[in-house]
Design a protein around this nucleic acid. Structure first.
Lengths: 217, 217
DNA sequence: ACCGAACCGTACCGTACGGTACGCATCCGG
DNA sequence: CCGGATGCGTACCGTACGGTACGGTTCGGT
């Protein structure tokens, strides 16, 4: 009965990572069917080991979520060489990656899990929020602010601007997927959506450049 | 998205509605604590009655969701007298009601429930989607199309336009609430958000009127 | 060669909860 | 006044699953 819940950037042994991978796979395949016995069998380990390593079921879930969250690659943007085209390209790329990530099976499964276990308090929801939504915001904001400094974007509050960006990119996609709607976005559709969202965002927040017509419907 | 939903607009006796109310209250207070025994106790009825009326647990949940969904008042808009101001007012009102509904405790609890029980297939997610997201779309589209016919809006596809509207209004609010983020939108904030979303939507889809400057940040 | 740690597999326990059975009270038509 | 129906309360059953215990095996260190 060790009470050792360490939160920050936990480092897992390869074997432990294999277990977490098994848990994650199981979670994606059958969300609610994630039972300790199932994980143990899938990972070819004993339940006792699971409890030894992760404390209890919640610890295992937390570790799984944290571990996966750490793997999410949020696009870093370098803010040198910032001209209107590169700004647009960076925003577009960010939108594309964001949409691809969120619409992925792993993200959906993870968010379902966190939402299921969200009766106020609770760490899972907070972890997912921190590593998903809020990390995204932290990553994009510097770009937005660089764009503002360069007089290519106009907004008062980068947080607000990001939230609008978030809405323009994801729209109803995330909640529909969470609710079981089969959407199956192809890469083409994702790219088209990202393009549209980028255009719309620049229409709302961009400073009209020399070439005036960027109006987008 | 459809697949006919059985028992449309089922009619419940007052006693049954009382039971459903109890179930809903219980769901809002303690989402995962919704047990048949708890519902029976809260509603002062016997479990046997629950099973007799609703078949099984899933039937009770389905009935609860359907019943609540039927109560959602989606703003109807009358499309006579459509001038730019009334169009804006109608859109604004719709945005306000949408945001208020979605950010309400009942909606959050219901969506959590449906998402929890969403391993593909499953009726709950479909019911919530149909009565939430899709009904909203069906209600707003006529207004949008009326606006287009009156040359005050411009878009190719009303579905796409609505999805953007949806994103602009809700942004990250719904998913944050679902994940347990305490957001507690005040009426003031809701109205301000609805205003902002309306402005942004009209910036993107509105036909520039005589007074040209509607730019909004 | 030996020892202990780590860990696998499996059997086991306790509990929570979905679902069922039954006894009793109330109400209503004849 | 009576018999059936409806429904409340409670006790009960079966199962699934979280958590624990234990014997057997592998392996690294000495």
């Amino acid at each position: 009965m060790t009470v050792a819940i360490r939160q920050t950037s936990e480092t897992f042994t390869p074997r432990q990572q294999a277990v977490l991978t098994a848990a994650l796979d199981l979670l994606v395949e059958a969300g609610d069917g994630l039972t300790m016995t199932a994980v143990a069998r899938r990972a070819s380990c004993s339940k006792e080991t699971l409890y030894k390593w992760f404390g209890d079921r919640d610890g295992l879930l937390t570790a799984t979520v944290q571990w996966q969250a750490a793997k999410v690659r949020v696009p870093l943007v370098d803010r040198r060489s910032l001209d209107p085209d590169s700004l647009r390209a960076s925003i577009y790329q960010f939108a594309r990656d964001l949409l691809a990530t969120i619409s992925g099976a792993t993200s959906v499964a993870l968010n379902r899990l966190a939402i299921s276990h969200a009766t106020e308090d609770n760490g899972l929801g907070a972890i997912v929020l921190d590593n998903g939504r809020f990390t995204m915001g932290k990553r994009l904001k510097p770009l937005l602010e660089a764009g503002r400094d360069a007089r290519m974007l106009r907004f008062d509050n980068s947080e607000t601007a990001f939230r609008t960006f978030f809405g323009l990119v994801l729209r109803d996609v995330q909640v529909r997927l969470l609710l079981g709607d089969k959407l199956a976005l192809s890469l083409k559709e994702i790219e088209a959506d990202a393009e549209r969202a980028t255009d719309q965002f620049l229409t709302l927040y961009g400073v009209p450049a020399n070439k005036p017509d960027r109006a987008q419907r």
